[in-house]
Design a protein around this nucleic acid. Structure first.
Lengths: 359, 359
DNA sequence: CTGAAAGCGCTTACAG
DNA sequence: CTGAAAGCGCTTACAG
């Protein structure tokens, strides 16, 4: 069914059909009703390609998940031979939130997962083919910057989630990031409130901004309370389960172990719990543990993990909203926003009482 | 950049540009090279809408996640005020696998999550607008059937994952389902092999095909071994965490509790573990537990859960492959396939030794 | 081998 | 208020 057919059926012209569909004024209610009725009846919908070609907006954005393995593996990602990345705790909430927000604003969402430079070329071509009006990139690394910055310079609308915003001043794009610093301040402050004064840390991969910021928040909070970082309670991990395991073995082997440990992400906590159990110790009775990320599994750990939630849902929604607004206004925008990190209290940290402290 | 511009630049006609892009024969290698070089240089890509309008296929499919709450809540789904469904363990692996398979076959993927009848109308319109060539529906329920069957009759290409295939004989669509029966046969057989002879069950919501089939496999396997189902070791749950909790309390309160329990999905195991812990018992020393689904969290439970894996990845890949093949051949196909369920052995079931048995 | 032209199904000034 | 016509950027018979 084409608009032509519908027009003939009703004794009208295509122009009129088009006008009622596009809500032009100056059309008598009677024709309006007649047309809409026929549209419903015949399941007519204007051909999307024809509309687009005639100048109407697509209303389509893409969400691009990057998992490109040139150097090291990104955060939390374990790939199988098949390149599946859904183990990434960001995956579901981000896609879900983008989809919902876009839907709410009447946009379609194309999903694309890029594992290689070649896949990235395809992403680029989404813009050149004018298939999409804009895109949200998740998890870009240094190596992808050039391609993305090119796109931005070519006046395409782009939002980036969880990417260093170092370049923002030069680029008209939307950057949404986690407030890692604030998150670790909250984590360490909580431990201090519980009465812990000896707090160790297992850091993430210190090449990553997130690891650096989380460490900085830890350090600053301790200093503010007149506590110094202890070398023997600090382990440089890399965000993997195994480094959490090693970290615990290292830190708890000392003569005077801390009473609490800030583990820089939840994935490392899995290894940490294993090591603690092997040492015959218990969480939180013998050692308090706090994580970071509020990964999907953290409430299923035993004991359930007190951690820092960084609402990827919120991040994704805001990115989507800002991107679509920017598209609708036909104006590129340079925006940096940080999303709050919040403490999620569960069962892995205990209150210190006097005996514990003096012990 | 339009093909016209490129043509002028090269002193050729649009026809020729189009012919090299679409790989027509009878074009001298020299012109081919010249054109491709210019295409690369100028980031030219044919406008997708124009191509589509001129008759070239879209190469776009949609993945439709249904979560419509007219009667009861679907399987495993907890919705927040925001309608997010990403807690569903199917979510990530299915989207990821569809995306990867489609990408491999050079198709784009549109994602749509439908929470209401109204959303479903939008999905319908994806077809009418000719935005997509076909779609994969996940988790449809009775109420959505009419709309989907209409689409099928209108010669649209459709695949359905995890839906009753009862209607297949009437409809030319691709149905991919889990072999629930085989899965529970495997679960119960494994318990029998370990030496358990007294095996309880917590069923799922018995209105659902999956719950019925899982129960049937359990019953049949016991019968085959000359064991009868015990009323006092059977609890009718509903796939929720809470019903797992209640089920354990009920079954283990009897005078002669079973040594193992088949819990019809992993979500209920979370509740079951809680109840067992409250009763002061331990898994698997005091009671063996086997689940179903191999949900993302099952390896993080403590002890890690022995369960049945139903590879949604495989399911989704096959559905995608079949759908796209059907689109390419321009022929609707009626296909039903069941995907294997496999046993994943972890730490929640113990071997029965003689003392246990005679006890 | 390659160009001119029709046609895909819309939207939107332009007339009336 | 509404129709006829141009135009969006391609592809593809049709000629040559």
């Amino acid at each position: 069914m084409r608009s032509e057919d519908l027009a003939k059926l009703l004794g009208l012209s295509r122009s009129t059909i088009s006008r009622v569909i596009n809500n032009y004024p100056d059309i008598p209610q009677a024709t309006r009703d007649k047309v809409w009725k026929a549209i419903e009846e015949h399941n007519y919908a204007p051909n999307a390609s024809a509309r687009k070609l005639a100048g109407v907006k697509n209303k389509m954005i893409a969400i691009i998940l990057l998992d490109i393995k040139e150097d090291e593996e990104p955060h939390h990602v374990k790939a199988t031979e098949d390149h599946l990345i859904h183990d990434n705790p960001f995956f579901s909430p981000i896609i879900n939130a983008v989809s919902d927000q876009a839907n709410k604003m009447d946009y379609y969402v194309l999903i694309s997962i890029a594992y290689s430079k070649k896949d990235l070329k395809k992403v680029q071509s989404l813009f050149y083919q004018k298939l999409i009006d804009g895109a949200i990139f998740v998890g870009t690394q240094e190596a992808e910057n050039e391609l993305i910055f090119n796109l931005i310079e070519q006046k395409h609308y782009i939002a980036m989630i969880d990417t260093s915003e170092a370049y923002n001043t030069k680029h008209n794009a939307i950057y949404l990031n986690v407030d890692n610093y604030e998150g670790s301040v909250k984590a360490v402050s909580y431990l201090l409130e519980l009465g812990h004064t000896s707090i160790g840390i297992i850091t993430g991969n210190i090449n990553k901004l997130s690891a650096i910021e989380r460490l900085a928040g830890y350090k600053a909070t301790l200093m503010q309370h007149g506590i110094e970082m202890r070398k023997d309670a600090t382990y440089h991990g890399d965000f993997t389960e195994n480094s959490g395991y090693e970290g615990i073995k290292y830190i708890l082997s000392g003569p005077n172990p801390p009473t609490a440990i800030f583990v820089s992400n939840d994935t490392m906590v899995i290894g940490a719990y294993k090591a603690i159990s092997e040492l015959g110790l218990r969480v939180p009775e013998d050692i308090s543990i706090i994580g970071f990320d509020n990964s999907f599994f953290s409430s299923y750990l035993n004991p359930s993990l007190t951690t820092i939630d960084i609402s990827f849902t919120d991040l994704a929604k805001r990115a989507t909203k800002l991107l679509i607004e920017s598209i609708e206004q036909e104006q590129q925008r340079g925006i940096i926003e940080k999303v709050n990190a919040t403490l999620v209290i569960r069962d892995s940290c205990k209150v210190m009482n006097r005996e514990d402290k003096t012990k």
